[in-house]
């Protein structure tokens, strides 16, 4: 499965190289767009020293952890988004005749290696924030765990968004709000959002487990919303539940696939 993925990704990389100018432009643009996100945070902290009680380094830590997870998914999974085009054009048929999971094929579809730039940018911000913060070394183990958890949650979201498009062909506008929206939402400390929203993204769509809850543990802080301490460690459980749900929805979507005429 993994080898099939990388074989496909490599193939698309070579295909992208067939248009070198566009390839170069995409790489540069990707970096600039990613840079503006950090610029926004830096501008905020040029005017204030704390955002809802969180320092600049803490905010960048939250941004970094969420964005490493998000950009990894954006690179390796988000191509699933394109499913509606394949469904409409009937080219999804081609994937169904191959002996490889459709999820793997869709995730690798038109793989864009240039997105590695954004992953690096996010990793750089995370690295800086860790060095700027005086973190308890006994709690650092949580960082790789939360990034994995976050990546699984985002991957599951994209899978759900893809599954929906089997039924609602033009839903990508709506589903983007959930996938990219979630990426944006998790870039800031949840303390700046309203209580109801945070409740929704904790117990409903489990975005709080991407970075917010585990980061409170790493930063050794109490939750301003007063959730109990064990919630900091529930990330992997939430990710697993969401992933199972997404896998089920994907299978259901495939069974509802109608193909096109002729």
């Amino acid at each position: 499965m993994v080898s099939a993925y990388f074989r496909l990704a490599w193939t698309w990389t070579r295909a992208a190289m067939a248009y070198p100018a566009s390839f170069a432009l995409m790489s540069v643009l990707g970096l600039i767009v990613a840079g503006t996100d950090v610029a926004v945070i830096l501008i905020i902290f040029a005017n204030t020293t704390s955002l809802a009680g969180f320092s600049r380094a803490e905010t960048l830590f939250l941004y970094g952890t969420a964005n490493v997870a998000f950009c990894l998914c954006d690179m390796f999974v988000s191509n699933i988004d394109r499913i509606s085009q394949h469904v409409k054009a009937g080219t999804f048929d081609t994937m169904l005749i191959r002996p490889v999971s459709t999820w793997i094929q869709m995730a690798a579809d038109r793989f864009l290696p240039t997105r590695i730039g954004r992953v690096l940018q996010a990793a750089l911000v995370l690295g800086y924030s860790i060095s700027a913060l005086d973190l308890d070394s006994g709690r650092l183990w949580m960082i790789p765990v939360m990034i994995t958890t976050g990546a699984v949650i985002f991957a599951a979201l994209w899978t759900l968004a893809g599954a929906v498009q089997f039924v609602l062909t033009d839903a990508s506008e709506v589903t983007n709000a959930f996938t990219y929206g979630s990426g944006q939402l998790t870039q800031y400390p949840f303390a700046i959002y309203g209580r109801e929203l945070v409740r929704g993204v904790t117990y409903g769509l489990p975005l709080a487990f991407v970075n917010w809850q585990p980061a409170l543990y790493v930063l050794d802080r109490d939750d301003p919303f007063g959730t109990p301490g064990f919630m900091r460690f529930l990330g992997p459980v939430a990710a697993l539940v969401l992933a199972l749900l997404a896998g089920f929805a994907w299978r259901l979507g495939i069974r509802h696939y109608r193909s096109t005429g002729s």
């Binding site: 080898s3 099939a4 074989r7 496909l8 193939t11 070579r14 295909a15 067939a18 009937g90 080219t91 048929d93 081609t94 005749i97 191959r98 002996p99 490889v100 002729s262």
Partner: peptide, 23 residues
């Protein structure tokens, strides 16, 4: 009416990819 090959790839590369996918 519809190719199962990869549009931007030379045939040889499509075949090589198929070799991997079908092991």
């Amino acid at each position: 009416q519809r190719t199962t090959l990869w549009w931007d790839l030379p045939l040889r590369d499509s075949f090589e990819l198929i070799r991997h996918l079908y092991k």
